[in-house]
Design a protein around this nucleic acid. Sequence first.
DNA 1: TCGGTTTTCCCAATTTTTCCCACTTCTGCA
DNA 2: TGCAGAAGTGGGAAAAATTGGGAAAACCGA
Lengths: 148, 148
Amino acid sequence: MFQGASQINLDAKGRLAVPTRVRDPLTQGGTVPVVLTAHPDKCLLVYPAPAWEPVRAQIMAFPSLNPASSPWKRLLVGFAEELSLDGAGRLLVSPELRAFAGIDKRVMFIGQGSYYEIWDLEHWQQQLDRLTAGGNPVLPPGMENFSL
Amino acid sequence: MFQGASQINLDAKGRLAVPTRVRDPLTQGGTVPVVLTAHPDKCLLVYPAPAWEPVRAQIMAFPSLNPASSPWKRLLVGFAEELSLDGAGRLLVSPELRAFAGIDKRVMFIGQGSYYEIWDLEHWQQQLDRLTAGGNPVLPPGMENFSL
DNA sequence: TCGGTTTTCCCAATTTTTCCCACTTCTGCA
DNA sequence: TGCAGAAGTGGGAAAAATTGGGAAAACCGA
């Protein structure tokens, strides 16, 4: 179960140093690669490769002639790439994914249960401000009785 | 049941000395870690790790394709981190959580039933001022008949 | 086939983190 | 009022991690 936030930097070669604490959970001790893909909120997703497979299968099962399916498939499957960490625990993020998420140097790495999200730092803070500034954050339907 | 307020300080390394009286209740005598996470009111929450689990499970159960769910998950799960107290009963609060809550040095540690809240002292006092200055604090819906 | 360019992998110095110890201050009790 | 124990506070050393660079290999085009 992935959780926690880390602010990290990409180096000049576009390499992203995965936070030490999550390397082993993410790669199952270095035995599996990870899959990077794109999310509609303009962030990237990181899955351990075995965890990505069922997700991809679900997306591929979307009715292919339904116009609502195509954008999802193009994003999630079209941008997906399988990568391994280098000896120093870094991921070489492709120029295409970097451009998509507006990632340049400063990045937030966010645990989200079964995957991690990678955000451009500035974009992450904008998204955060919207939640903390809005006086009454909206709860999703059916969850109005949620309490901490 | 956690209650009570303490004004405490972070040292130069970002370590927060948990008040002596709450150390044992929070860690169940040193046997369990604690979980720190973020709240939309720009304070931090502290749970005994076992008490956090059901809360996280509820958040993870939010409908994942509903746009109202994502910000909550990103805030509460995304910032969550499991920590242990050091030998002197201190928590090393990550730079990300400190930045989120605007915590620098002086903080308030507030009991809130099943968890504690950590506020930047200045921010806490602003929040208090708003409550005491506004002539008639608003009661939540369904609670209009509340009496002390 | 050869030269140039890009990519990949590895090494090493610096920086950061983590853990532990010691000193000072405070509190309670005699 | 003084002493003893506990708690708060700060510092330091060892270990680990980040970061940048550089050399070798692979790839592409001429």
